[in-house]
Amino acid sequence: MKKAKFLYLFLLSIFFFIGCSPKQTKIKTSNSKYCANELSLLSISDSLKKITIDYSLEEKPLLSSIEEKVGENVCGELVSFGLILKNEDVIKIQYQKICDDGIIFCGRKPWKAKILLNEHGLLLIDYELSSIDSVKHWLHQNLMNGKGVKFKETSIQWQTETPKDSIEKTFANIMDGYLLKYEDLSQQLFLKKICDLETSQINILKEKLSFKLQLELEELIIIPPPPPIQQE
């Protein structure tokens, strides 16, 4: 009788643990509006450094700060790290320092969706004036076309005087834009929402569209000032 009672309690404890474990997973991601699958598409592996950066630093001090926190000399190397946003979401960033090798690149890079922010918080995306709130819709519509991936990566650059809130808002819109496109792919391929996919299916989405967000610091930003107010 005692053995049967012990076995019953043992099995009950196992079922209790199994039933509670998914809830524990949800608690870990409850601080973010994104589900675990969405975060896995945009975030980084545990092996990479997660850092914060001071958006108000000028180019050289900012670069030195990134190198110090990441622990790598980024000259000529493509370095990846996780940028911790104010809301504690972590977004995967790539950076490659332009070294003094005498090579100068002129012209547009058609495979890159380039986002520029000036000191007024005005934004250009692919050299077209846009609002920050429209970035997610632009990426959703333009990242891919009928032939496949149109923009293999997205880059972001700002000026020292650019408001911090504008920068963080732009990061959030970039994340949302990619997720809108991932949601399209998820429905097309699996007839499921991203949050309902298996790990193997998430990996297929990554193969179809890789999330690559590159930080650019050293190119000249030329964004037109706001249009003058017309007097009636």
Results as ranks from 00 to 15, higher is better:
K206N: 13
L83P: 02
S186P: 02
A4S: 14
S155L: 05
S155N: 02
P224N: 14
F6N: 14
F190E: 12
D126W: 01
K147L: 14
T160F: 06
K112T: 05
L215K: 09
F15Y: 13
G148V: 09
I115H: 03
K193R: 10
L85A: 03
Q187D: 06
Y8Q: 12
N203K: 15
L116W: 01
E183V: 02
L213V: 08
G121F: 03
H120K: 07
E68M: 08
L129A: 10
Q94E: 07
T162K: 04
Y55T: 08
E168V: 06
K150C: 10
S200T: 13
V70H: 02
K192T: 11
M144F: 01
L63G: 05
D196E: 15
E58G: 06
L48E: 03
I104V: 15
L12S: 11
L215H: 04
P61V: 06
S47H: 07
S45P: 03
I221A: 15
E59W: 01
V149S: 00
K150A: 03
V90K: 02
D101W: 10
Q214P: 03
C99Q: 09
P226V: 15
Q187P: 00
I222E: 15
Q188Y: 07
N173Y: 05
L42E: 02
G121W: 01
D89T: 12
E88P: 00
V74S: 13
K136Q: 08
L179Y: 03
N73A: 07
S200P: 00
I156Q: 02
D126S: 10
K26S: 12
L139G: 00
K49P: 01
I93T: 02
F105D: 09
D46P: 01
P225K: 12
H140S: 11
D133M: 02
I221V: 14
C106Y: 13
A172N: 02
G121R: 04
H137Y: 10
N142D: 11
L220Y: 15
D54E: 12
S200E: 15
V70F: 00
W158V: 06
Q187W: 12
L143S: 05
F6C: 09
D54H: 06
S13T: 15
K169P: 00
I202W: 14
I98P: 02
Q159C: 04
T160W: 03
E88K: 13
L205Y: 12
